[in-house]
Amino acid sequence: MGASDSPSSDLTPAGGSIRVLLVEDQVELRALLSDVLQDAGMEVRIAEDAHSAKVILEDFPCDVLVSDVHMPGSENGIDLAEHLKRSRPQARVILASGHPPRQLPSLPGYAHFLQKPFRLNQLMQLLAA
């Protein structure tokens, strides 16, 4: 599926491209994913932890949160997802982890899960779903 294929256009808000908040503590992975999403026409903001992500959310009404479950700091991706859903209940959430779901805290029912390592097309399919 190309970046301009129709499924991703279903996510596009009235004002333009899909707004994605990407929260990942691994610098190389964060840079790679950010580049891929931007190349696909998405507006992307990046953060390395939940605290930084919350600051970004004050001025960036994301449509989709893509976050690692485990990250530095006192809050995890699940905490961040709950914070986002309180202010933007329509936002979608994709949580990723190198640990299998059975080894994680209970994931919210609204969240999609990506097992690391994942393929870029798996992430793109979830964004287009």
Rank of each mutant, 00 (worst) to 15 (best):
Ser4Gln: 12
Ala96Thr: 06
Pro89Ser: 08
Val27Glu: 13
Pro7Trp: 01
Val20Ala: 08
Leu11Cys: 01
Pro13Thr: 05
Arg102Leu: 02
Leu33Met: 06
Gln103Arg: 14
Ala111His: 06
Met71Asp: 13
Pro101Leu: 13
Pro105Arg: 09
Pro13Ile: 04
Gly77Ala: 08
Pro101Cys: 12
Leu11Trp: 00
Met42Leu: 11
Gly77Asn: 07
Leu21Asp: 07
Val64Phe: 04
His51Phe: 14
Val27Phe: 13
Asp5Thr: 01
Arg19His: 14
Glu28Met: 15
His70Met: 14
Met71Leu: 15
Met124Thr: 00
Asp79His: 03
Val55Ile: 12
Ala31Ile: 04
Arg19Glu: 11
Val64Leu: 11
Pro61Ile: 05
Arg45Trp: 11
Glu58Gln: 15
Leu21Val: 09
Met1Ala: 03
Pro7Cys: 04
Val44His: 08
Ala81Gln: 03
Pro13Val: 06
Gln125Cys: 00
Ile56Ser: 03
Ala47Leu: 04
Gly73Lys: 08
Ser6Met: 02
Met42Thr: 04
Ser67Ala: 10
Met71Gly: 12
Ala50Trp: 14
Val93Pro: 05
Gly98Met: 09
Pro100Phe: 07
Ser106Phe: 11
Val64Ala: 07
Glu75Cys: 02
Arg19Leu: 10
Pro108Val: 05
Ala96Glu: 02
Val93Thr: 09
Pro101Met: 08
Ile46Val: 15
Phe118Thr: 11
Ser9Asp: 06
Arg30Ala: 11
Pro61Ser: 14
Leu114His: 03
Cys62Phe: 12
Glu82Tyr: 07
Pro72Ile: 01
Val64Arg: 02
His112Trp: 00
Ser34Asp: 09
Ile94Asp: 02
Asp68Leu: 12
Asp49Ala: 06
His83Ser: 14
Glu75Ser: 12
Phe113Glu: 07
Leu32Met: 15
Asn76Ser: 14
Ala91Asn: 11
Gln103Met: 14
Leu80Gln: 00
Gly15Pro: 02
Leu11Gly: 05
Leu104Pro: 13
Gln125Ala: 07
Asp59Cys: 01
Asp25Ser: 12
Leu21His: 05
Ile46Met: 15
Ser87Asn: 12
Lys116Ser: 04
Ala40Met: 06
Asn76Arg: 13
Ser34Pro: 01
